[in-house]
Design a protein around this nucleic acid. Structure first.
Lengths: 220, 220
DNA sequence: CTCACTACTAAGGAATCCTAAATATTGTCA
DNA sequence: TGACAATATTTAGGATTCCTTAGTAGTGAG
């Protein structure tokens, strides 16, 4: 009898997926509510957020499509709408005249700074968790995202653990075991990034080595 | 200098949100890829999955809209498309002739059984995690979802922790501390459900009490 | 100078979303 | 009973998101 439940229910991973789906559902519906409040649809918001991370450099249409995980035509659609709204500017590259470089206008920057594309409500919810749980969650998410990336099921993720500037566990201080060569400073697990503007992919061998080093000292 | 990173980067919860967003992005893009492969769009898939969980009972239009976290007209849209495809049937309730009851057809059931609306790839990724991490993740997700629900930022979640049949921590066995009155059997954390078909919401006072009891023995 | 390739746009169509305004039914209360 | 509020759903209308397929330029290799 005690095994009844064990047998009739799905594996643990399915429950985890169900949970992630619920969170996804919440993100989607809240994003649309925000959209109608602020006149920025979810995809537009994501696009603004992405461009904001690249101020100065801008982004090509292809890069945008890849990062937004949509097809080129869809990316083209969004950018056209955003251009009509006056939030982005399109410019032909002088080096390669096929390439379009997209940048935020001043007004677009304002919209992006206003938090477009950022699910505030979820940050508030995450903040209700004790710090230890937030750290666990972050570590686990990083693990999953890394696997997704290895399997090419996610476009881009500029995570420390795949970055050439990342030096995992080089210090004894358990609060700040890692080092970032870009800013040249030590840091701890809680500062591990998912989407770092300065990210440069590490060579495959180094990435592999880093991941092992990073993982072996896991405090989960 | 050691504080440079601490000061220039956002709080931990923001990283967690960034991670969840990446997962959400992956879910969305994979769902659309599946859509084009199997001729079932994401919303349609979710709808079929939902109706599958309710075989025998069916669902009203309002309930569906609420669970899918969309407006009534949007729900009406999907159902019309699914009806045209021959996967659902609409019937007027005899008790209240305003109400429409929606049920799966045999073919709709086949589609639903075929895994429509279920992100397989994510289950595969979750399964790469050690069981202990999966359990942590599940617990943390449950916590977040519960908060979301308290704040009415998520429609419905039929979780054990809000169910009237749930008896948390009534046994000493650390593997199976809880009891489900519905199936009348003990079970452990790893079987905690997010979306149980048999869920009945508990009274507010009991829910509160249950949550406290459940939480105090947390093994995170 | 041609041909393959790359970056992007256009065309076309289905779905997903919303708000606002019907429509039909039910329940309430005088 | 009869008006009127409330409820469940649909219609109408419009913007956006999303795809596939088919152009159109521009680049680069030979």
């Amino acid at each position: 009898m005690a095994d009844k439940l064990e047998n009739t229910t799905e594996p643990l991973s399915n429950r985890v997926v169900a949970g992630l789906q619920k969170i996804g559902l919440a993100m989607k519906s809240q994003a649309w509510k925000e959209a109608n409040r602020r006149r920025v649809t979810p995809l537009q918001g994501q696009t603004l957020a992405l461009l904001r991370m690249r101020v100065g450099r801008g982004a090509t249409m292809s890069a945008l499509a890849q990062e937004l995980a949509v097809t080129l035509p869809t990316a083209s659609d969004v950018i056209r709408t955003l251009e009509v709204k006056g939030w982005v500017r399109k410019k032909r590259s002088k080096v390669d005249r096929r390439v379009i470089t997209i940048t935020l206008t001043a007004e677009g920057m304002r919209k992006a700074d206003g938090g477009a594309g950022w699910p505030d409500f979820l940050a508030a919810v995450a903040d209700q968790l004790p710090v230890a749980e937030q750290e666990s969650l972050l570590r686990i998410l990083i693990k999953m995202i890394r696997t997704l990336q290895e399997r090419s099921e996610i476009p881009v993720a500029r995570m420390c653990v795949t970055c050439c500037y990342f030096r995992p566990r080089v210090y004894d201080d358990p609060e700040r075991p890692h080092h970032c060569d870009f800013v040249n400073a030590p840091f701890g697990d809680r500062l591990l990034r998912i989407d770092c503007a300065e990210h440069e992919p590490a060579a495959k061998a180094q990435a592999e080595r880093n991941w092992k080093t990073f993982n072996q000292g896991s405090r989960l």
